[in-house]
């Protein structure tokens, strides 16, 4: 059992940054309604922005330009659509164009089952543009790792968080088995579904390698990622975002190119998320992962 939850880790990292590192935290409605799922400490350095999504991101980027390494909180990833322009068009470009960096740490919080405007997972959009580091930490140790990475580099970072992780105290480790039939790669919240899916599959004699993906960009294809796939010959990349032109397809392609193995992408269906079942279009769960693997193995 770990000592801290992900939420407590975020809070601690933030407190240190604001009190010891001259950092800033900016966002909308930060100090109300649970202090962003209890991830924000009550300390100096917090700037409440008005409800101005585009300008708010620009203000955060401006603070990054002058060296404050701001944490910019976006309570629901859907709002990245509005906040995206200063991040994409300025923060991500300025280092390459001008050799002047704008390291802003964007806490983009994902969720599921909250209807059409609060359930989006949008990290894929940002993967398209040069200049970002993009990750999706789901454990306390991963959060500490990506924070250190942010401090050690000067790129803007999109941190695709997920509410499903905030109570988690456990590290999520890869599990590689002999003679696996399939390798499952998972991103963000669907990582919590992997073991359940594997148990169901293994009950039918289908052995699964489980590989957890923290970094979406840069996505470095290491032996840790390729070896299990070369052994199983088939794989699936699972992401809680949209499948078409999304992280799952992009990373599946990278893995396929690196190994020659068949790798399928599994993400959201190509339709809007709605509030109520059966139209929620929720992130792939254990049952959908099971079905996808069965289909792939039968091809």
């Amino acid at each position: 059992m770990g000592l801290k939850t992900v939420a407590e880790t975020i809070k601690e990292v933030t407190r240190n940054h604001l009190t010891k590192n001259h950092g800033l935290l900016l966002g909308e409605s930060i100090t109300a309604v649970g202090w962003v799922n209890n991830t924000v400490p009550d300390c100096p350095g917090i700037v409440e922005l008005p409800m101005t999504d585009v300008a708010g991101a620009g203000i955060a980027v401006g603070a990054a330009l002058v060296g404050r390494r701001p944490i910019f909180v976006i309570r629901f990833q859907d709002f990245l659509i509005l906040n995206g322009s200063p991040l994409i068009f300025y923060a991500a470009k300025t280092k390459e164009l001008h050799d002047k960096s704008a390291p802003v740490f964007v806490r983009a919080i994902g969720a599921d089952g909250l209807g059409p405007v609060h359930s989006g997972i949008l990290h894929s959009i940002f993967m398209h543009f040069p200049g970002f580091r993009i990750c999706s930490p789901m454990t306390p140790g991963e959060y500490e790792e990506i924070w250190e990475n942010f401090l050690a580099n000067d790129d803007p970072m999109i941190v695709s968080e997920h509410r499903a992780s905030y109570g988690n105290t456990q590290e999520l480790n890869d599990r590689i088995v002999d003679n696996a039939d399939i390798t499952l790669y998972a991103i963000s919240s669907v990582r919590f579904e992997l073991h359940k899916a594997a148990e169901t599959l293994e009950a039918e004699g289908i052995k699964c390698n489980l590989v957890h993906l923290l970094w979406l960009k840069p996505f470095v294809v290491t032996e840790r990622l390729t070896e299990p796939l070369l052994q199983s010959k088939k794989g699936v990349v699972i992401d809680p975002g949209y499948e078409i032109a999304g992280a799952s397809q992009s990373l599946a392609y990278e893995l396929n190119q690196a190994t020659g193995c068949k790798v399928k992408a599994l993400g959201l269906y190509d339709r809007s998320k709605c509030l109520c079942p059966p139209l929620q279009n929720k992130a792939p769960d254990a049952a959908r992962i099971y079905e996808t693997v069965k289909m792939l193995l039968n091809e």
């Binding site: 800033l24 700037v47 401006g62 060296g67």
Partner: peptide, 18 residues
């Protein structure tokens, strides 16, 4: 960088930060 007016929030953020 070409989005007209983008420099307004950037200036505000820079003044806030510095």
């Amino acid at each position: 960088h070409g989005l007209i007016g983008e420099n307004v929030p950037l200036a505000v953020g820079a003044a806030l930060g510095s």
